[in-house]
Simulated scan of single mutants.
Amino acid sequence: MINIFKVVSFLEGVSYLLLMFLGMPYKYLESLGNDPIYVKMFGMPHGILFVAYIVLAFLLKPVFKWSIKEFGIVCLLSLLPFGTFFVGKYLKKDVA
Rank of each mutant, 00 (worst) to 15 (best):
V95N: 12
L17Q: 06
M41I: 12
K40S: 11
G23H: 02
G33D: 12
F82I: 14
A57I: 05
N3P: 10
G72M: 04
P25S: 05
G47E: 02
F21R: 07
G43R: 03
S9E: 00
F5A: 04
F5M: 06
E12Y: 05
G43E: 03
I68S: 15
D35C: 09
L56V: 01
F5N: 00
F58Y: 11
G83E: 05
G23N: 04
L18W: 04
I73L: 15
K61F: 06
L18E: 02
G47N: 03
G88V: 09
I68M: 13
S9R: 00
I2D: 10
L59N: 04
I48E: 00
S67I: 08
K89Y: 15
L77C: 06
M44E: 11
F42E: 02
V63I: 13
F82S: 08
G33F: 13
L76K: 08
P62C: 08
V74G: 01
K92M: 11
M44Y: 13
M44H: 11
G13F: 05
T84N: 12
I73D: 03
F10I: 09
G13A: 11
S78G: 15
A52Q: 01
G88A: 09
L19N: 01
L19D: 01
L49A: 00
N34T: 09
L76W: 07
K40E: 12
D35F: 04
M44R: 11
G33W: 10
L60A: 02
I2R: 05
K89A: 15
Y28F: 14
G13V: 05
A57H: 00
I48Q: 01
I73E: 02
Y90K: 09
T84R: 01
V8E: 00
G33S: 09
S67L: 10
I2S: 11
F42I: 09
Y38C: 06
I73A: 05
L17V: 13
I2M: 13
N34W: 09
F71Q: 04
F58I: 07
L91S: 06
V7K: 06
K89G: 14
P25C: 05
Y90G: 09
I73S: 02
I68Q: 11
D35L: 03
L77M: 15
F10A: 05
L49E: 00
M41Q: 11
S78H: 04
L19F: 09
V87I: 15
K40Q: 12
V55A: 11
V74I: 12
V63F: 06
F82Q: 13
D94T: 13
K89N: 14
G83K: 03
C75M: 15
M24Y: 05
S78F: 05
V87W: 03
P81N: 13
C75F: 10
L18Q: 02
E12D: 14
G33R: 08
M24F: 06
F64I: 03
M41D: 05
L60R: 02
K93M: 12
Y16A: 04
V63E: 12
M44P: 02
C75T: 09
M44Q: 10
N34G: 09
F10L: 13
H46I: 07
P81R: 07
E12H: 06
Y28A: 12
E12S: 07
V55P: 00
M44T: 14
L11M: 10
T84A: 07
K92Q: 15
A52N: 03
L91M: 15
P36A: 13
L29N: 15
